[in-house]
């Protein structure tokens, strides 16, 4: 009785058969969900990374500019285009309201992305594959990607970063 104190002996009342059945099923599902996440870290191919480094906007900017200089192949709408070799460290920075640089990658190869921000929080949202990660200033998030599809991909910013937020869009090109 939700409004009145429970009746005498409520503690000893037996649990009904159907309620017991339901709780048992729910418990099994819940434990499965938990261990599923652990197991996916071992066998699954999409997992958030274990690696993050502490950095500063100045340091990260210097590293990104050096990275761009090293592998730059051109420019697109005022943003440098960079083609790093497979298995290398790739730097991508977000700032109000640009993603730098444009990356050219090869399908099926691994790249260690270092992603960070120079100012506010940004959201790395890769479309149309729809993979989403957060980008902080002061944190170098290291995500090892292996593109499994080719074509042009957009990096949409999906964390609010001021009035120009909706103009913050970058590009990744994946070649066969």
């Amino acid at each position: 009785m939700a409004l009145l104190p429970p009746e005498e002996g409520w503690y000893y009342k037996k649990v009904a058969r159907d309620e017991k059945m339901w709780i048992a099923i729910a418990l099994v599902v819940c434990l499965t969900l938990f261990f599923w996440m652990v197991v996916w870290h071992v066998y699954g191919r999409q997992n958030p990374s274990f690696t993050t480094y502490r950095t500063t906007p100045q340091e990260f900017n210097a590293l990104t500019q050096a990275f761009i200089e090293k592998y730059k192949t051109g420019e697109m709408n005022g943003i440098p285009v960079v083609e790093p070799p497979p298995n290398s460290d790739v730097f991508l920075l977000g700032k109000m309201w640009r993603w730098e640089p444009v990356l050219v990658l090869k399908k099926g190869q691994e790249y260690r992305f270092h992603i960070s921000s120079l100012d506010l929080l940004h959201g790395f949202s890769l479309q149309p594959v729809n993979m989403n990660f957060m980008v902080y200033p002061g944190y170098d998030y290291v995500l090892t990607f292996r593109p499994t599809s080719a074509g042009e991909f957009a990096i949409v910013c999906n964390e609010f970063c001021g009035v120009g937020h909706h103009t913050m869009i970058g590009k990744i090109i994946v070649k066969e």
Binding site: M76, N77, G78, I79, W97, R98, G123, S125, Q127, P128, N130, A154, V156, C157, N158, E159, F160, G164, H165, H166, T167, M168, I169, G170, K171
Partner: peptide
């Protein structure tokens, strides 16, 4: 959201941005 449309976003045609993207 499953189509990738962001939350808290003023203009998903990205007008004024360096590139563009069209959702499904």
């Amino acid at each position: 959201g499953a189509f990738g449309v962001p939350r808290r976003h003023y203009d998903i045609t990205f007008s004024g941005g360096p590139f563009t993207y069209t959702f499904n």
